[in-house]
Design a protein around this nucleic acid. Structure first.
Lengths: 318, 318
DNA sequence: TGCGTCGCATAACATCGGGTTATGAACGCG
DNA sequence: CGCGTTCATAACCCGATGTTATGCGACGCA
């Protein structure tokens, strides 16, 4: 960390232009300034440096030895700056860059592949990295700057909701909401109904998912005054469905999970009452959405997944 | 000649400081600014570049990808600038540099060796080049930027005096004046006098020196109404004196010439009437005296040659 | 050699970038 | 759960740096 350099970029560029063009006027034109501007700047620079940089030579000017020294270094300096500027321009122009994405497990096999594919198609220069993480961890990574975009979900009424705790450093937007459905064995008496009341499931054995899902299960049951008996836990949706099909219990599943794991024979899904929707959120650091590469990823997420999902919803008549 | 770079030095230095120190406040302290100054500059830079450079990370800030790009180039850029600045500082500090000197032939064996020796002693880092040239040529080279310092002489009343023709691009200062003396054979009748009148030499055969000296001879004689008969010409002072010793004619010689060529047996020198002094001038490009290396040379010339000469003059009782 | 054109320097003036201090809000720590 | 630290914002101020206008010297050409 050295002191302020007496040699500023402007002087370097000016000296360089004069070295190449031979006159102050021409340099001024080339740099887009008026002639006196260059003259005065030179005088100031000379005063700072303590030595003349140019000497009048008949009609034009000529560089003194110190001036020639600057001119000699000018190419190096400006090219170093141009290199940085060029790389920056590539970043801004989305011809390069990296987006680091975190998303919850279920998204890994649904949203994320589409997203990464779309990114590659739209911005071949961009590189994307992906890491699977549950919402709390994903938000932690976001806060720590380990990822740029976090795709999370959030259950309504979630007490420790990380999205709306007034954290001004994060910006989250709701991508869409999806219903949480009940998975139960096909032969189950309640399977005859279209909509199953949670209160009627007080005596069931429950299969819980990830901690957040389990939390939602507890909260939802508590809301109707029952306490679920949780006997099995797995965050693997396929396993959950197969366990249900085997008659080992019932489970709540976000509908997205069904996209990754088709309902096996012996199990079926039903809407619940009261119904509950899980929100799919996309979260970035506050202001990070203005970083070109991140912005591109956000746009991709919203257009591809959001729009397509809504279309799909409309088609299925929900 | 590209357009103005969006990436200025200030931003580079700031980003670099933030990258190394982790907080805006620390960077501000390190750079000698207030904290809001850095904040605002960053905002401006981000607006210019079209992308955020830093993102808040808990207590401090963290660089975004574009910011990291700048930080990565920062070392290159600042080191390139420091290299130029350092070289410039050496120039200004007289630890290096070049002075190109031109002087008239007689000075080559008197003034110039002392000057070069003194320069080497006082400023070992400075390099000096020397070229021998008659005053008109020396001034031409000066004007063309081929040399930095010209040591010339000038006869009084010189019509085409290159020193005072209002040439504002050159600055000349009088080092000292030296008398022009008459060389004549020892046996010559006028040799009996201490001072010889030019008018009495109307019928002599003359030996002329360099064009300028010849011009002075003609002018001096014309001033007293005589026209010298010039039979021999040589710019070699030794030859002139030997020719005079051989009785082949008389000659006018600046006294400096006697320092290079001792008066041989058979010749002697006398003052002339009217007397005439030749001025020894040191000339530089206007303003070039402020270039450190040139300034050092000028100081050396004035102190060493000027002072010593005056001392010598006092010692010889002139 | 005198004139027209070009280029640099200077003066007078305008303006805005970039600085400062003051103050508020958020974060993390003890 | 306050306290220190850090960043952001506002209000203000100033001087660096630009502009136009003008004068002068240098070159080239007839």
């Amino acid at each position: 960390m050295n002191a302020d350099p007496v040699l500023d970029l402007h002087s370097v560029r000016i000296v360089r232009a004069i070295a190449e063009l031979g006159t102050i006027s021409a340099a001024a034109r080339a740099l887009g300034y008026s002639q006196p501007a260059i003259s005065q700047h030179l005088r100031r620079a000379e005063a700072r440096l303590g030595t003349p940089l140019v000497a009048r030579a008949g009609r034009g000017v000529r560089l003194t030895e110190p001036g020639q020294v600057i001119a000699r270094h000018a190419i190096t300096i400006t090219s170093a700056l141009d290199a940085a500027g060029g790389e920056l321009a590539e970043l801004v122009g989305l011809r390069t860059g990296t987006v680091r994405i975190a998303a919850f497990p279920t998204a890994s096999s649904t949203l994320v592949p589409r997203l990464l594919h779309g990114m590659r198609r739209q911005h071949p220069g961009l590189r994307a990295s992906y890491v699977e993480a549950e919402p709390p961890e994903a938000l932690g990574m976001l806060r720590d700057g380990l990822v740029d975009v976090a795709i999370t979900f959030q259950y309504p009424g979630d007490r420790a909701d990380p999205h709306r705790d007034g954290d001004a450093t994060l910006e989250s937007t709701l991508l869409y909401t999806e219903p949480v459905v009940l998975a139960l064995p096909e032969g189950h008496p309640l399977a005859a109904r279209d909509v199953v009341a949670l209160a009627d499931l007080a005596d069931e054995r429950w299969i819980a998912g990830c901690p957040l899902c389990r939390g939602h299960l507890l909260a939802a049951c508590e809301a109707v005054g029952v306490t679920p008996r949780i006997e099995l836990e797995t965050d693997n949706a396929v396993a959950v469905l197969n366990l249900v099909a085997s008659g080992l219990g019932v489970a709540l599943l976000p509908r997205l999970a069904l996209a990754t794991a088709p309902v096996p024979p012996g199990a079926c899904v039903r809407a619940t009452s009261p119904s509950s929707d899980r929100g799919i959120q996309v979260v970035v650091q506050s202001g990070a959405g203005r970083v070109p590469a991140v912005a591109a990823a956000l746009a991709q997420i919203r257009s591809e997944d959001g729009a397509e999902w809504h279309l799909r919803q409309a088609a299925t008549g929900r």
